[in-house]
Design a protein around this nucleic acid. Structure first.
Lengths: 228, 228
DNA sequence: ATAATATCTTAACCTTAAGTTAATCTACTA
DNA sequence: TAGTAGATTAACTTAAGGTTAAGATATTAT
C-alpha cells in the first residue's frame, strides 16, 4: 500500500529487464507501467503522467535521449523524474542523457537493492522540492526558512506549510504583485487543482497570525508584500 | 555493497584516466559518475550531488579551478569534498586549487592503491564530520557522544544507536528544521530503504525516554530540536 | 555455534492539524 | 447601484504524524 500512487514508467526493449524491474517495483507496491521504445514511452507518459520514468538509452524506434528531450517539452511531465539505464561506461550516453533533461542514470548491470534504494530516493527528492532557505528581513518582519519561523518584533510565529510558503513567496520580492496564477504554481504546484477561494483563506490566515498589515490586495490582479 | 551510494564524480578530459579510475572505484562498489570538462562537471554535480569530486586541473572548456570555485557556490554541494589531480609538482595549480575551495590534491601519476586509500580517507572524513563527538549542552539536557549518553538534570539516559544519532543530529543545530530527507541521509544513510513511519517511531521513543519536550514536529516539513 | 536480549522496522489503526470548500457577507468598481 | 472580486466564517475532508504491538535483525552472552 505504502508506495501506491507513485507511478513509474519503465522503458526498455529487453523484455527480461522490464520484467525483473517490474517484479521488484511491484513487490514494493509501486504503480508500474512499461513501454518498449521511445515512441511508446511518450505515448504512455502522456496517458499516465508517471512520477518517475526509467528508460534505457539504446532502443529501436526511438532512443531514450530523443524521447527524454521530447518528454521534457510536455507541460504535465515537467515535474517527472527521468532516469537513464546505461551500460557501464557508456560515457557519452550519460552526458547526453543529462543534457537532454535527464535527472540521473543507473548503470547496468542492475542490482535490485541498489535499484530500489535509488527509486526511493527519487521519490523522496521529488516531494521535498527545492526550497529557498534565504533569510528574509523586511522592517520588523523576519522570515527564517531554516527554522520555519516568522519573527515579528522578536515574537516567533509558527505558520503551517502552505501559509509559510505563500508568505515566503510574496516576501521574496516585495512590491511585486503576484497573480493568483503565479501563486498557485509556486506554492501549490502545477499539478494540483484547487479552488480560487483557497488562496484568499490562506492570505487571511497569514494576516490574522502576523497581525501587521504586510499583504496588500490588488483587486483583479493578485497580492503583494509591502512594508509600510 | 559496502561503498554503494558514496557518489564520486570523476572529471578529466583524458578518457583513459577516467576509465582506469572508474574501474578501480567500481571494483570497490563506489557509485561513479564522470565528466570530461569543468562545465560538464558542474552540470553533473548539480544533478547527482556527489560526495566526492575528483577533478583534473587542466581541461578544455573550463578548467578545474574555475569549476571548483563555481561548485563551491552551490548550496547542495557545500559538503562535497573536492580533490584535484595535478601533474607532479605543478606547484601553482595545487595552491590555486586549494584557494578555490579544493580540499586536497592527488599528484599524477596515479597509483591505484594510493588512490583508493585516499578516497577511503575522504569518505571517512566526511562521515566523521557529521558524527561529531562534540559534547552538546542545551539547558538541562546534555548529549555526550563520547559516552553515548544523554544526561537530563543529572540523570543518565542510555539511547540506542539510531535514537542517539537522531537526537544528536537535531540537537547539533537547535531550531533548524531537519526534513525527513536530511534525517534519512544523515542518520540512516542513502543506501538504506526504510519507510516513513520509522522516523516517527524513533522520535517517539526519544520523546518517551527523555521526558522533556525538546523535539518539535513541523508538519509537512520535518522535526526540530528546541529548548523552551 | 546457539540462545537470549536488545534494537530496529513495519503494519495497522488512531488522532489531529492542515488544507479545502461552500455559503454568506462586504467593499470596490464601472 | 448592480455586478464582481475578495473577505470571512464555519463545516468538511484529507494528509501527516502518533501510537502500539508484533515481527525482523542485530548484538551480546553463554
Amino acid at each position: 500500500m505504502k508506495n501506491k500512487n507513485y507511478k513509474i514508467l519503465l522503458v526498455d526493449d529487453e523484455k527480461d529487464i522490464l520484467e525483473i524491474l517490474r517484479y521488484n517495483l511491484e513487490k514494493e507496491d509501486y504503480d508500474v507501467y512499461t513501454a518498449k521504445n521511445g515512441l511508446e514511452a511518450i505515448e504512455k507518459a502522456k496517458k499516465v503522467t508517471p512520477d518517475l520514468i526509467i528508460m534505457d538509452v539504446m532502443m529501436p524506434e526511438m532512443d531514450g535521449i530523443t524521447a527524454c528531450a521530447e518528454i521534457r517539452t510536455i507541460e504535465e511531465l515537467k515535474n517527472s523524474t527521468i532516469v537513464f539505464l546505461t551500460a557501464r561506461s557508456e560515457d557519452y550516453s550519460q552526458i547526453a542523457g543529462l543534457e537532454a533533461g535527464g535527472d540521473d542514470y543507473i548503470s547496468k548491470p542492475i542490482k535490485p537493492k541498489v535499484f530500489l534504494s535509488k527509486v526511493k530516493s527519487y521519490q523522496r527528492k521529488s516531494k521535498s522540492e527545492l526550497q529557498d532557505s534565504q533569510l528574509l528581513v523586511h522592517g520588523s518582519i523576519t522570515i527564517d526558512p531554516e527554522r520555519y519561523l516568522v519573527i515579528i518584533d522578536g515574537t516567533e510565529i509558527i505558520l503551517p506549510r502552505k501559509e509559510f510558503k505563500l508568505l515566503q513567496l510574496l516576501a521574496g520580492k516585495p512590491s511585486k504583485v503576484f497573480t493568483r496564477e503565479e501563486i498557485f504554481s509556486k506554492v501549490w504546484g502545477n499539478d494540483v487543482v484547487v479552488g480560487d477561494r483557497t488562496i484568499d483563506v490562506h492570505i487571511r490566515k497569514i494576516r490574522e497570525k502576523i497581525g501587521i498589515n504586510v499583504i496588500r490586495t490588488v483587486k483583479g490582479v493578485g497580492y503583494t508584500f509591502e512594508i509600510d
